[in-house]
Design a protein around this nucleic acid. Sequence first.
DNA 1: AGCGATGGTAAGTGGCAACTTACGGTAAGT
DNA 2: ACTTACCGTAAGTTGCCACTTACCATCGCT
Lengths: 105, 105
Amino acid sequence: MADHSRALVALGDPTRRAIFERVASRPSSVVELAHEFPVSRPAVSQHLRVLKDAGLVRDRAEGARRIYSLDPAGLAAVRDYFEQFWRTSLASFRDVANRSHEEEP
Amino acid sequence: MADHSRALVALGDPTRRAIFERVASRPSSVVELAHEFPVSRPAVSQHLRVLKDAGLVRDRAEGARRIYSLDPAGLAAVRDYFEQFWRTSLASFRDVANRSHEEEP
DNA sequence: AGCGATGGTAAGTGGCAACTTACGGTAAGT
DNA sequence: ACTTACCGTAAGTTGCCACTTACCATCGCT
């Protein structure tokens, strides 16, 4: 499974993506996050686990709390995937446009 | 629902993403696609519908066949989302790094 | 008109994933 | 040591979604 694939599956869920964006904007603990979303604390924990497995999130222990923060690696992987995809796809897209252009002068 | 949100949900499914990538690389009909994936033709049709609703795919009638091709709009939306996200997140990420740096000279 | 090919959609099913509650385990404060 | 707070995980439930089969409409060809 490629690096971006797991990340895309993870970001496919709206709740999980919202949590990810929230964590990216400000590193936070689990209870802090659970307080801001309409889901239970274990649900947040499970989402964070998926995000972590996808390389999108890191966590560091800070006393009894675990602070989750952005992991640039996963985000970079997804970004690069779309960036590359955009370039190559747009190229072939232009090829098709040019081809149909040449066929009817 | 933002433009990129629907697209990300659509690309969350691996099969659907594979179909999308295949369509992007070469415009094709439904049966053609169904022949290349281990799912039935209606399944492909349904995936294409989701991709179309997400603005990721276009379709044009060509005789009795419908040729599906990439819709740059949806792809651009996702790309821009990650591009922007990458910039802002990386900025705040650097802020945190700098902050913790300043706190322990 | 009749036929074969294409494909959208309805209906139904199975499996999975997102969620809950319950429990246990660790860290800090008193 | 006891309590309180934080959190991961196990167990169970539910709803959704990806998939199938079946049916019907449309298009092109003879």
